[in-house]
Design a protein around this nucleic acid. Sequence first.
DNA 1: TGGGTCATGTAACCTGTTACATGATTAG
DNA 2: CTAATCATGTAACAGGTTACATGACCCA
Lengths: 186, 186
Amino acid sequence: MLKHGILGLLNYSDMTGYDIKTVFNDSLKYFWQAQTSQIYRELQVLEKNGWIKSTHVEQSGRPDKNVLSITEEGKKELKRWLTDDSESSTIRNPILMKTFFRGECGLDENIEFFRNLAERECVFPEGSNEADSIQSEYKKNIDNPMKALYWKFTSDFGMMYDKMLRKWCKNCISELEALKNENTLD
Amino acid sequence: MLKHGILGLLNYSDMTGYDIKTVFNDSLKYFWQAQTSQIYRELQVLEKNGWIKSTHVEQSGRPDKNVLSITEEGKKELKRWLTDDSESSTIRNPILMKTFFRGECGLDENIEFFRNLAERECVFPEGSNEADSIQSEYKKNIDNPMKALYWKFTSDFGMMYDKMLRKWCKNCISELEALKNENTLD
DNA sequence: TGGGTCATGTAACCTGTTACATGATTAG
DNA sequence: CTAATCATGTAACAGGTTACATGACCCA
Protein backbone atom coordinates (compact mmCIF):
# COMPACT_ATOMS: atom_id res chain seq x y z
CA MET A 1 0.00 0.00 0.00
CA LEU A 2 2.79 2.43 0.92
CA LYS A 3 4.61 1.45 -2.28
CA HIS A 4 1.64 2.59 -4.31
CA GLY A 5 1.20 5.74 -2.26
CA ILE A 6 4.77 6.72 -3.08
CA LEU A 7 4.18 5.83 -6.72
CA GLY A 8 1.09 8.07 -6.72
CA LEU A 9 3.05 11.01 -5.35
CA LEU A 10 5.85 10.55 -7.87
CA ASN A 11 3.23 10.47 -10.60
CA TYR A 12 2.32 14.04 -9.62
CA SER A 13 5.92 15.22 -9.65
CA ASP A 14 9.53 14.19 -9.12
CA MET A 15 10.58 14.18 -5.48
CA THR A 16 13.36 13.25 -3.11
CA GLY A 17 12.87 10.77 -0.27
CA TYR A 18 12.81 13.74 2.04
CA ASP A 19 10.01 15.41 0.04
CA ILE A 20 7.96 12.22 0.18
CA LYS A 21 8.40 12.03 3.91
CA THR A 22 7.25 15.64 4.25
CA VAL A 23 4.11 15.05 2.21
CA PHE A 24 3.23 11.96 4.27
CA ASN A 25 3.76 13.72 7.54
CA ASP A 26 1.86 16.85 6.49
CA SER A 27 -0.80 16.31 3.84
CA LEU A 28 -1.51 12.60 4.16
CA LYS A 29 -0.95 12.01 7.84
CA TYR A 30 -4.66 11.94 8.65
CA PHE A 31 -5.05 8.70 6.73
CA TRP A 32 -1.53 7.26 6.42
CA GLN A 33 1.77 7.63 8.19
CA ALA A 34 5.25 6.56 7.18
CA GLN A 35 8.65 6.77 8.80
CA THR A 36 11.76 7.90 6.94
CA SER A 37 13.33 4.49 7.41
CA GLN A 38 10.39 2.77 5.77
CA ILE A 39 10.26 5.23 2.87
CA TYR A 40 13.93 4.80 1.97
CA ARG A 41 13.55 1.03 2.17
CA GLU A 42 10.50 1.02 -0.10
CA LEU A 43 12.27 3.33 -2.56
CA GLN A 44 14.96 0.68 -3.00
CA VAL A 45 12.31 -1.92 -3.79
CA LEU A 46 10.47 0.39 -6.19
CA GLU A 47 13.70 1.03 -8.07
CA LYS A 48 14.54 -2.68 -8.15
CA ASN A 49 11.08 -3.29 -9.64
CA GLY A 50 11.82 -0.73 -12.34
CA TRP A 51 8.87 1.46 -11.28
CA ILE A 52 10.99 4.50 -10.45
CA LYS A 53 14.42 5.80 -11.36
CA SER A 54 16.79 7.90 -9.32
CA THR A 55 18.95 10.81 -10.48
CA HIS A 56 21.79 12.13 -8.36
CA VAL A 57 21.72 15.94 -8.23
CA GLU A 58 24.64 17.90 -6.81
CA GLN A 59 23.79 21.00 -4.85
CA SER A 60 25.85 23.80 -3.37
CA GLY A 61 25.11 25.01 0.11
CA ARG A 62 23.01 21.97 0.95
CA PRO A 63 23.41 18.20 0.73
CA ASP A 64 23.25 16.47 -2.62
CA LYS A 65 20.00 14.72 -3.32
CA ASN A 66 18.55 11.77 -5.21
CA VAL A 67 15.58 12.89 -7.23
CA LEU A 68 13.10 10.08 -7.87
CA SER A 69 10.85 9.92 -10.89
CA ILE A 70 8.24 7.43 -12.03
CA THR A 71 8.90 5.26 -15.09
CA GLU A 72 6.44 4.05 -17.71
CA GLU A 73 6.41 0.67 -15.94
CA GLY A 74 5.62 2.51 -12.70
CA LYS A 75 2.70 4.35 -14.27
CA LYS A 76 1.34 1.07 -15.53
CA GLU A 77 1.64 -0.43 -12.05
CA LEU A 78 -0.08 2.58 -10.46
CA LYS A 79 -2.99 2.26 -12.86
CA ARG A 80 -3.21 -1.47 -12.19
CA TRP A 81 -3.38 -0.88 -8.44
CA LEU A 82 -5.98 1.89 -8.75
CA THR A 83 -8.35 -0.23 -10.78
CA ASP A 84 -7.82 -3.44 -8.81
CA ASP A 85 -10.91 -3.75 -6.63
CA SER A 86 -10.11 -7.28 -5.47
CA GLU A 87 -8.05 -6.37 -2.40
CA SER A 88 -10.41 -5.57 0.45
CA SER A 89 -8.88 -3.74 3.38
CA THR A 90 -8.28 -5.57 6.63
CA ILE A 91 -9.98 -3.91 9.56
CA ARG A 92 -8.01 -3.20 12.68
CA ASN A 93 -9.54 -0.83 15.18
CA PRO A 94 -7.60 -0.33 18.43
CA ILE A 95 -10.40 1.78 19.92
CA LEU A 96 -12.88 -1.07 19.66
CA MET A 97 -10.37 -3.57 20.99
CA LYS A 98 -10.10 -1.55 24.18
CA THR A 99 -13.82 -0.85 24.35
CA PHE A 100 -14.58 -4.56 24.04
CA PHE A 101 -12.76 -5.36 27.28
CA ARG A 102 -13.79 -2.26 29.22
CA GLY A 103 -16.24 -4.27 31.33
CA GLU A 104 -13.23 -4.82 33.59
CA CYS A 105 -13.33 -1.19 34.66
CA GLY A 106 -15.89 0.73 36.70
CA LEU A 107 -18.78 2.80 35.34
CA ASP A 108 -17.33 6.19 36.25
CA GLU A 109 -13.96 5.23 34.87
CA ASN A 110 -15.60 4.24 31.60
CA ILE A 111 -17.66 7.40 31.32
CA GLU A 112 -14.40 9.30 31.64
CA PHE A 113 -12.83 7.00 29.02
CA PHE A 114 -15.48 7.87 26.43
CA ARG A 115 -15.33 11.55 27.33
CA ASN A 116 -11.63 11.67 26.44
CA LEU A 117 -11.83 9.27 23.52
CA ALA A 118 -13.48 11.53 20.97
CA GLU A 119 -10.93 14.30 21.15
CA ARG A 120 -7.98 11.94 21.39
CA GLU A 121 -8.98 9.84 18.40
CA CYS A 122 -10.41 12.43 16.04
CA VAL A 123 -8.69 12.75 12.69
CA PHE A 124 -8.92 16.53 12.88
CA PRO A 125 -8.82 17.35 16.58
CA GLU A 126 -10.72 20.42 17.69
CA GLY A 127 -8.50 23.48 17.73
CA SER A 128 -6.12 22.13 15.12
CA ASN A 129 -6.42 23.79 11.73
CA GLU A 130 -5.56 20.70 9.75
CA ALA A 131 -8.91 20.46 8.05
CA ASP A 132 -8.65 24.12 7.03
CA SER A 133 -5.11 23.79 5.73
CA ILE A 134 -6.16 20.84 3.59
CA GLN A 135 -9.11 22.82 2.27
CA SER A 136 -6.85 25.73 1.31
CA GLU A 137 -4.33 23.36 -0.19
CA TYR A 138 -6.84 21.85 -2.54
CA LYS A 139 -8.21 25.27 -3.41
CA LYS A 140 -4.70 26.21 -4.58
CA ASN A 141 -5.03 23.29 -6.96
CA ILE A 142 -8.26 24.28 -8.69
CA ASP A 143 -6.28 24.64 -11.91
CA ASN A 144 -6.09 20.87 -11.58
CA PRO A 145 -9.70 20.34 -10.54
CA MET A 146 -9.62 16.55 -10.75
CA LYS A 147 -6.67 16.29 -8.40
CA ALA A 148 -8.19 18.74 -5.93
CA LEU A 149 -11.57 17.03 -5.85
CA TYR A 150 -10.23 13.70 -4.69
CA TRP A 151 -8.15 15.41 -2.02
CA LYS A 152 -11.35 17.02 -0.81
CA PHE A 153 -13.13 13.64 -0.73
CA THR A 154 -10.51 12.28 1.64
CA SER A 155 -10.80 15.23 4.01
CA ASP A 156 -14.62 15.02 3.82
CA PHE A 157 -14.27 11.45 5.02
CA GLY A 158 -12.15 12.60 7.95
CA MET A 159 -14.72 15.15 9.00
CA MET A 160 -17.62 12.72 8.73
CA TYR A 161 -15.65 10.14 10.68
CA ASP A 162 -14.99 12.63 13.48
CA LYS A 163 -18.65 13.56 13.66
CA MET A 164 -19.64 9.91 13.88
CA LEU A 165 -17.03 9.19 16.53
CA ARG A 166 -18.25 12.04 18.71
CA LYS A 167 -21.83 10.86 18.37
CA TRP A 168 -20.87 7.29 19.27
CA CYS A 169 -19.00 8.45 22.38
CA LYS A 170 -22.00 10.55 23.39
CA ASN A 171 -24.32 7.55 22.99
CA CYS A 172 -22.04 5.30 25.04
CA ILE A 173 -21.89 7.90 27.81
CA SER A 174 -25.69 8.22 27.83
CA GLU A 175 -26.14 4.47 28.23
CA LEU A 176 -23.57 4.29 30.99
CA GLU A 177 -25.16 7.19 32.84
CA ALA A 178 -28.61 5.64 32.58
CA LEU A 179 -27.17 2.49 34.11
CA LYS A 180 -25.53 4.47 36.87
CA ASN A 181 -28.84 6.13 37.80
CA GLU A 182 -30.64 2.77 37.85
CA ASN A 183 -28.07 1.44 40.29
CA THR A 184 -28.39 4.51 42.51
CA LEU A 185 -32.16 4.07 42.74
CA ASP A 186 -31.86 0.48 44.07
CA MET B 1 -2.50 -4.80 20.68
CA LEU B 2 -3.15 -8.44 19.73
CA LYS B 3 -1.27 -9.54 22.86
CA HIS B 4 -3.74 -7.61 25.00
CA GLY B 5 -6.71 -8.81 23.01
CA ILE B 6 -5.69 -12.39 23.75
CA LEU B 7 -5.13 -11.49 27.39
CA GLY B 8 -8.62 -9.99 27.52
CA LEU B 9 -10.17 -13.17 26.14
CA LEU B 10 -8.27 -15.36 28.58
CA ASN B 11 -9.48 -13.11 31.36
CA TYR B 12 -13.03 -14.16 30.48
CA SER B 13 -12.20 -17.86 30.46
CA ASP B 14 -9.47 -20.41 29.81
CA MET B 15 -9.01 -21.27 26.15
CA THR B 16 -6.84 -23.13 23.67
CA GLY B 17 -5.06 -21.38 20.82
CA TYR B 18 -7.71 -22.85 18.56
CA ASP B 19 -10.52 -21.33 20.65
CA ILE B 20 -8.85 -17.93 20.51
CA LYS B 21 -8.57 -18.17 16.76
CA THR B 22 -12.27 -19.04 16.52
CA VAL B 23 -13.31 -16.05 18.63
CA PHE B 24 -11.18 -13.70 16.51
CA ASN B 25 -12.52 -15.02 13.27
CA ASP B 26 -16.13 -15.02 14.44
CA SER B 27 -16.97 -12.48 17.14
CA LEU B 28 -14.15 -9.96 16.78
CA LYS B 29 -13.46 -10.09 13.08
CA TYR B 30 -15.36 -6.86 12.37
CA PHE B 31 -12.71 -4.89 14.25
CA TRP B 32 -9.67 -7.17 14.43
CA GLN B 33 -8.32 -10.16 12.56
CA ALA B 34 -5.60 -12.60 13.47
CA GLN B 35 -4.05 -15.60 11.76
CA THR B 36 -3.39 -18.88 13.57
CA SER B 37 0.33 -18.47 13.01
CA GLN B 38 0.33 -15.09 14.67
CA ILE B 39 -1.76 -16.26 17.63
CA TYR B 40 0.53 -19.20 18.43
CA ARG B 41 3.55 -16.93 18.16
CA GLU B 42 2.05 -14.33 20.50
CA LEU B 43 1.07 -17.06 22.98
CA GLN B 44 4.73 -18.01 23.29
CA VAL B 45 5.61 -14.41 24.11
CA LEU B 46 2.76 -14.05 26.60
CA GLU B 47 3.94 -17.17 28.40
CA LYS B 48 7.55 -15.97 28.38
CA ASN B 49 6.32 -12.71 29.96
CA GLY B 50 4.58 -14.70 32.67
CA TRP B 51 1.17 -13.29 31.72
CA ILE B 52 -0.36 -16.67 30.91
CA LYS B 53 0.32 -20.29 31.76
CA SER B 54 -0.32 -23.38 29.70
CA THR B 55 -1.66 -26.75 30.86
CA HIS B 56 -1.41 -29.84 28.69
CA VAL B 57 -4.69 -31.74 28.64
CA GLU B 58 -4.90 -35.25 27.19
CA GLN B 59 -8.06 -36.09 25.31
CA SER B 60 -9.43 -39.27 23.84
CA GLY B 61 -11.00 -39.22 20.42
CA ARG B 62 -9.49 -35.86 19.56
CA PRO B 63 -6.05 -34.25 19.68
CA ASP B 64 -4.52 -33.26 23.00
CA LYS B 65 -4.68 -29.59 23.76
CA ASN B 66 -2.84 -26.84 25.61
CA VAL B 67 -5.27 -24.89 27.75
CA LEU B 68 -4.12 -21.33 28.39
CA SER B 69 -5.08 -19.35 31.47
CA ILE B 70 -4.25 -15.85 32.61
CA THR B 71 -1.96 -15.34 35.62
CA GLU B 72 -2.12 -12.63 38.28
CA GLU B 73 0.70 -10.85 36.44
CA GLY B 74 -1.36 -11.07 33.27
CA LYS B 75 -4.41 -9.55 34.95
CA LYS B 76 -2.26 -6.70 36.17
CA GLU B 77 -0.93 -6.14 32.66
CA LEU B 78 -4.44 -6.21 31.18
CA LYS B 79 -5.60 -3.58 33.64
CA ARG B 80 -2.54 -1.45 32.91
CA TRP B 81 -3.24 -1.56 29.19
CA LEU B 82 -6.95 -0.79 29.62
CA THR B 83 -6.28 2.32 31.68
CA ASP B 84 -3.31 3.54 29.65
CA ASP B 85 -4.69 6.37 27.55
CA SER B 86 -1.28 7.53 26.32
CA GLU B 87 -1.07 5.33 23.22
CA SER B 88 -3.01 6.97 20.44
CA SER B 89 -3.87 4.73 17.52
CA THR B 90 -2.05 5.16 14.24
CA ILE B 91 -4.39 5.81 11.36
CA ARG B 92 -4.05 3.80 8.19
CA ASN B 93 -6.93 3.91 5.78
CA PRO B 94 -6.45 2.05 2.49
CA ILE B 95 -9.73 3.37 1.10
CA LEU B 96 -8.56 6.95 1.39
CA MET B 97 -5.15 6.11 -0.05
CA LYS B 98 -6.81 4.90 -3.23
CA THR B 99 -9.33 7.72 -3.28
CA PHE B 100 -6.55 10.29 -3.01
CA PHE B 101 -5.00 9.19 -6.31
CA ARG B 102 -8.22 8.47 -8.19
CA GLY B 103 -7.80 11.67 -10.23
CA GLU B 104 -5.82 9.42 -12.59
CA CYS B 105 -9.02 7.63 -13.62
CA GLY B 106 -12.02 8.86 -15.57
CA LEU B 107 -15.26 10.24 -14.11
CA ASP B 108 -17.44 7.28 -15.00
CA GLU B 109 -14.86 4.84 -13.72
CA ASN B 110 -14.78 6.73 -10.43
CA ILE B 111 -18.54 6.87 -10.04
CA GLU B 112 -18.50 3.10 -10.43
CA PHE B 113 -15.67 2.89 -7.88
CA PHE B 114 -17.72 4.69 -5.22
CA ARG B 115 -20.83 2.68 -6.06
CA ASN B 116 -19.01 -0.58 -5.27
CA LEU B 117 -16.99 0.80 -2.38
CA ALA B 118 -19.72 1.03 0.24
CA GLU B 119 -20.79 -2.58 0.02
CA ARG B 120 -17.26 -3.90 -0.30
CA GLU B 121 -15.93 -2.00 2.69
CA CYS B 122 -18.82 -2.12 5.10
CA VAL B 123 -18.17 -3.80 8.42
CA PHE B 124 -21.53 -5.54 8.29
CA PRO B 125 -22.26 -6.03 4.59
CA GLU B 126 -25.87 -5.94 3.56
CA GLY B 127 -27.38 -9.43 3.51
CA SER B 128 -24.92 -10.80 6.07
CA ASN B 129 -26.43 -11.43 9.45
CA GLU B 130 -23.29 -10.61 11.40
CA ALA B 131 -24.76 -7.62 13.17
CA ASP B 132 -27.76 -9.75 14.22
CA SER B 133 -25.63 -12.63 15.44
CA ILE B 134 -23.59 -10.24 17.57
CA GLN B 135 -26.77 -8.74 18.98
CA SER B 136 -28.09 -12.19 19.93
CA GLU B 137 -24.72 -13.17 21.33
CA TYR B 138 -24.66 -10.26 23.72
CA LYS B 139 -28.28 -10.84 24.67
CA LYS B 140 -27.26 -14.34 25.76
CA ASN B 141 -24.87 -12.60 28.13
CA ILE B 142 -27.34 -10.35 29.92
CA ASP B 143 -26.55 -12.27 33.11
CA ASN B 144 -23.23 -10.49 32.74
CA PRO B 145 -24.67 -7.10 31.78
CA MET B 146 -21.39 -5.21 31.93
CA LYS B 147 -19.68 -7.57 29.53
CA ALA B 148 -22.61 -7.52 27.12
CA LEU B 149 -22.90 -3.74 27.10
CA TYR B 150 -19.36 -3.17 25.85
CA TRP B 151 -19.84 -5.80 23.16
CA LYS B 152 -22.89 -3.86 22.05
CA PHE B 153 -20.92 -0.62 21.97
CA THR B 154 -18.46 -2.13 19.51
CA SER B 155 -21.19 -3.37 17.19
CA ASP B 156 -22.96 0.01 17.46
CA PHE B 157 -19.74 1.56 16.20
CA GLY B 158 -19.72 -0.82 13.26
CA MET B 159 -23.24 0.09 12.28
CA MET B 160 -22.64 3.82 12.60
CA TYR B 161 -19.46 3.47 10.56
CA ASP B 162 -21.30 1.68 7.78
CA LYS B 163 -23.99 4.36 7.69
CA MET B 164 -21.33 7.05 7.45
CA LEU B 165 -19.45 5.21 4.73
CA ARG B 166 -22.57 4.83 2.60
CA LYS B 167 -23.37 8.52 3.01
CA TRP B 168 -19.83 9.51 2.06
CA CYS B 169 -19.94 7.36 -1.07
CA LYS B 170 -23.29 8.88 -2.01
CA ASN B 171 -21.90 12.40 -1.59
CA CYS B 172 -18.85 11.62 -3.70
CA ILE B 173 -21.05 10.21 -6.44
CA SER B 174 -23.27 13.31 -6.37
CA GLU B 175 -20.30 15.61 -6.80
CA LEU B 176 -18.89 13.53 -9.63
CA GLU B 177 -22.23 13.45 -11.41
CA ALA B 178 -22.66 17.20 -11.07
CA LEU B 179 -19.24 17.60 -12.68
CA LYS B 180 -20.17 15.21 -15.45
CA ASN B 181 -23.29 17.23 -16.27
CA GLU B 182 -21.34 20.49 -16.32
CA ASN B 183 -18.93 19.01 -18.84
CA THR B 184 -21.78 17.77 -21.02
CA LEU B 185 -23.33 21.25 -21.13
CA ASP B 186 -20.14 22.86 -22.50
C1' DT C 1 -15.12 -41.29 0.56
C1' DG C 2 -14.94 -36.53 1.12
C1' DG C 3 -15.45 -32.42 3.79
C1' DG C 4 -15.84 -30.14 8.27
C1' DT C 5 -14.21 -29.64 13.05
C1' DC C 6 -10.69 -29.98 16.50
C1' DA C 7 -5.90 -29.16 17.36
C1' DT C 8 -1.02 -27.89 16.84
C1' DG C 9 2.43 -25.53 14.83
C1' DT C 10 6.88 -23.82 11.41
C1' DA C 11 9.20 -20.96 7.73
C1' DA C 12 9.67 -17.31 4.87
C1' DC C 13 8.50 -13.07 3.87
C1' DC C 14 6.60 -8.36 4.06
C1' DT C 15 5.40 -4.19 6.60
C1' DG C 16 5.90 -0.97 10.34
C1' DT C 17 8.40 1.09 14.54
C1' DT C 18 12.22 2.76 17.32
C1' DA C 19 16.57 4.16 17.83
C1' DC C 20 20.70 5.63 16.05
C1' DA C 21 24.03 8.32 12.96
C1' DT C 22 25.80 12.35 10.28
C1' DG C 23 26.40 17.06 8.73
C1' DA C 24 25.96 21.62 6.34
C1' DT C 25 23.24 25.94 5.98
C1' DT C 26 20.17 29.42 7.50
C1' DA C 27 17.07 32.21 10.26
C1' DG C 28 16.04 34.12 14.77
C1' DC D 1 24.51 30.24 19.76
C1' DT D 2 20.74 27.35 18.89
C1' DA D 3 17.05 25.33 16.60
C1' DA D 4 14.98 24.27 12.29
C1' DT D 5 15.42 22.68 7.62
C1' DC D 6 17.43 19.87 4.11
C1' DA D 7 19.17 15.37 3.14
C1' DT D 8 20.65 10.58 3.54
C1' DG D 9 20.42 6.33 5.48
C1' DT D 10 21.27 1.52 8.74
C1' DA D 11 20.05 -1.97 12.36
C1' DA D 12 17.21 -4.33 15.23
C1' DC D 13 13.01 -5.52 16.46
C1' DA D 14 7.87 -6.05 16.41
C1' DG D 15 3.74 -7.18 14.08
C1' DG D 16 1.18 -9.25 10.20
C1' DT D 17 0.52 -12.43 5.93
C1' DT D 18 0.92 -16.56 3.11
C1' DA D 19 1.89 -21.02 2.53
C1' DC D 20 2.79 -25.35 4.21
C1' DA D 21 2.35 -29.60 7.28
C1' DT D 22 -0.05 -33.21 10.05
C1' DG D 23 -3.75 -36.16 11.68
C1' DA D 24 -7.88 -38.21 13.97
C1' DC D 25 -12.73 -38.23 14.34
C1' DC D 26 -17.51 -37.56 12.74
C1' DC D 27 -21.30 -36.87 9.68
C1' DA D 28 -23.57 -37.16 5.18
